Amino acid sequence: MLTKLIWLMAGAFAIGTEGFVIAGILPAVSRDLHVTIAQAGHLVMAFAFTYAIAAPVTATLTASWPFGRQLRLAMGGFTLANVIAALAPGFTALLIARVLLALFAGLFMAAAGSYAAASSEPSRRGRALALLYMGMTAATVLGVPLGTWVGNNFGWRATFWMIGLLSLVSLLGLTRLRPLTVPWPVPSLRERLRIAARPDVLMTLGVTLVCFAGIFGVYTYLSPLLRLVAGLSDDGVALALLSFGVCGAIGNLLGGHMADRFGALRVGGLALAVLGLVQAGLAWVAHAAPPQVAVYLVFGLIMAWGVVGWSFPPVQQVTLVQQAPQAVSVVLSLNASAMYFGIALGAWIGSLVVAADKVRSLPWVGAAGVFAAAGLAAVVRGRLRRAARRAQAAPLPA
C-alpha cells in the first residue's frame, strides 16, 4: 500500500509545507517586498479563502476525469505556481501565485483522497487515507521547519524553489500511477450544499470555522510574536515550529485514538477547553511573564498547543462522519472548506491586531475563538444527545 500511495504522500507533503510555511517566513517576505507584516498576512488569507471555495467546485467539475489526469494537472499547476511565486517581482504577483497554489492544492487533495480510497479494499480504506495524510503531518514536522530555515537563511524565494522541487518529484512519480476510474457516484455541488444545510452538520462546521479562525489569528503571525515575546532568532523560530510539528504529529494520533475510546463529542469538547487555556496562557506570558523565563514558558505552551490543537481535527472528522455516515466524502470536504474559511478569517482578524501594533494581544484572539468554538460544540453535543434520547424513546413500528 505504501508503494502505491508514495507519490500522493509526496504531493501532500509539498502542499502541507506550502500551506503552513508562510507563517515562518512572513517577516522575510515583509522586509523584501516592502509591505507591513499585516499586509503580508494577506498571503495566508488569499490561499485559505481560495482553497475553501475552489476545492469543492474543482472537485465537482473534474469528477468524471480519470484520477491520473486530475492528479497530474493539479500537481503540474502547483509546481508551476511555485515557480511563479519564487520569481514574483512584487507583492501583487506573489498574492496571485498564492491564489493559484490554493486552486491546484485543493484539486490535488480531493483527487488524492478519492484515489487512496478507491484503490484500496473497503476494510483498508482508513489506513490508506491515514497514509495519505501522513504526508501533511510530515510537512508540519519536517517541511515547515526546514522551509522556515531555508527562507530565513537563503531568502524566502528559496523556500518556494524548494517546494517547487518537491512538487516536481511528486509530479514525475505520478506519471507511473496505476490507471483508475471513480468507482462510485460523485455528489453534485447542490447535493453538497444540501447536506451542509442540515442544522447539526452546519453547527459542527461552525465549530471548525470558529476554532481555526481563532488559532490562525495567532499562528499566521507566530514568527513576529515569538521574536517579540521570547526574543527568538531565525533559528529559534524554526526550532519552535519543529517542536510544534512533532507535538502536532503526536496529537493527531492521540486524538483519533481517544475519540474511538471515549467518544468524539466528549474528547472534542475537552480538547477545545484545554486549547483555549493554552492560548490564554500564551497571552499571559506575552504580557506579564519575566523575560528570563518567557522563552521556556513559550516553548512549553507551543508544544502543548501542538499536541492539543492537532488532536482536534481528527476528532471533528469523526463527529461529522457519525452525523452523516451515508455521505462521508461530502462532510469531510465541507469540513476542509470550513477549516480554510476559518484560516482566512483568522489571518484577516490577526492582520487588524498587528496593524494596530498589538502583536502581544494576538493570543487573546486565539483564546476567544477557541472558547467560542467550545461553547458552540457544547450546544451541538446537547442537541445530538437530545436527538438520541428521542430516538430511543420513539415507539417501534408495528
Score class of each variant (00 low, 15 high):
M1Q: 10
L2I: 13
L5E: 01
F13A: 03
I15Y: 09
T17P: 00
E18G: 11
I22V: 15
A23Q: 05
L26S: 00
V29G: 05
D32G: 03
L33C: 10
H34R: 12
H34C: 12
H34W: 11
H42T: 15
M45L: 11
M45Q: 10
A48L: 01
F49M: 10
A54N: 04
A55Q: 10
V57I: 14
T62R: 02
S64K: 12
W65L: 14
L71H: 04
R72H: 02
A74F: 09
M75D: 07
G76H: 07
G76E: 07
A81V: 15
N82S: 11
A85S: 14
L87H: 01
A88W: 10
I96M: 13
I96E: 15
A102S: 15
A102Q: 07
L103V: 10
F104D: 06
F108D: 04
A110H: 01
A111R: 00
S114G: 14
Y115P: 13
A117Y: 03
A117E: 10
A118F: 11
E121Y: 08
R125M: 02
L142K: 05
G147P: 14
G147K: 03
V150F: 03
G151A: 01
F154K: 04
W161Y: 09
I163D: 11
L166G: 04
L168C: 15
L171P: 14
L172Y: 03
L177Q: 02
P179K: 07
P179H: 05
V182L: 14
P183H: 09
P185G: 02
L189P: 15
L193P: 14
I195E: 13
A196P: 14
P199V: 11
D200E: 09
L202P: 02
L209F: 03
V210N: 05
C211T: 12
G214Q: 09
G214H: 11
F216A: 00
G217F: 02
G217N: 10
Y219P: 12
T220S: 09
Y221F: 15
P224L: 06
L225E: 13
R227T: 06
L228G: 03
L232D: 02
D235N: 15
L241H: 04
F244Y: 15
L254W: 06
L254R: 04
G256W: 03
R261H: 06
A264Q: 00
L265K: 12
L265R: 14
R266C: 13
G268F: 04
G269M: 00
L270Y: 13
L270H: 05
L272G: 09
G276L: 00
G276C: 00
G281I: 08
L282C: 06
A286R: 08
H287A: 10
A288I: 08
Q292W: 10
V293L: 13
V295G: 04
Y296V: 10
L301K: 08
V307D: 11
W310S: 03
P314A: 05
P314D: 14
T319N: 13
T319Y: 07
T319S: 07
Q322F: 00
Q323R: 06
A324W: 02
P325V: 07
Q326E: 15
A327G: 04
S329H: 12
L332H: 04
N335W: 01
Y340I: 00
A344N: 06
W348Q: 13
L352S: 10
V353F: 02
V354F: 08
D357A: 08
K358W: 07
K358P: 00
S361H: 06
P363W: 01
V365E: 10
A368L: 09
G369D: 06
G369A: 01
G382S: 13
R390L: 15
A391S: 13
Q392C: 05
